[in-house]
Amino acid sequence: MRQFLRDSGHLVRPAVVLVVGIAAFLLIRTALIPKAFGKYGHYDAAALDRIRQHPVAFAGQDTCVMCHDDQAKARAAGKHAHVSCEACHGPQAAHANADDPSAHKPALPDVANLCRRCHEKDAAKPNDFPQVVTAEHSGGALCTACHQPHNPHL
């Protein structure tokens, strides 16, 4: 054995260096590559979970209706039946998820600008969509002076 090492040491030593090098490469590679990498493709599958961690701002129609049953009924009876609550009232997850929702009361929408965003006359809007030239239609009066926003017929 001693004789063998003396004669072929020049081969054994680089072989050991090579094996150690490969081992170091594998070790570093394993440490750097995330566990879930390659699970679905050439990317880190854990990114899906990270992206899912993003907080929700819009609670969703079903959540609103859980408490605001009365407004939901009024809305369902009128032409705004298909308009979700948060389309006008804005994102309400903070209100809905609060321990005491009444302490996080959402601000009322700015009616002067809210209604006309949808209903101001515009040639690009579909013809069958109800539109008015607000200046001629109400002469500056707020829409809510005549219309109930949840069920806007007169």
Binding site: V56, A57, F58, G60, Q61, H80, H82, V83, S84, E86, A87, C88, P91, C118, F129
Partner: peptide, 12 residues
């Protein structure tokens, strides 16, 4: 849930 844009779209 649906997307925020779909949730807020008043006309579907």
């Amino acid at each position: 849930l649906t997307t925020a844009c779909c949730e807020a779209c008043p006309t579907g």
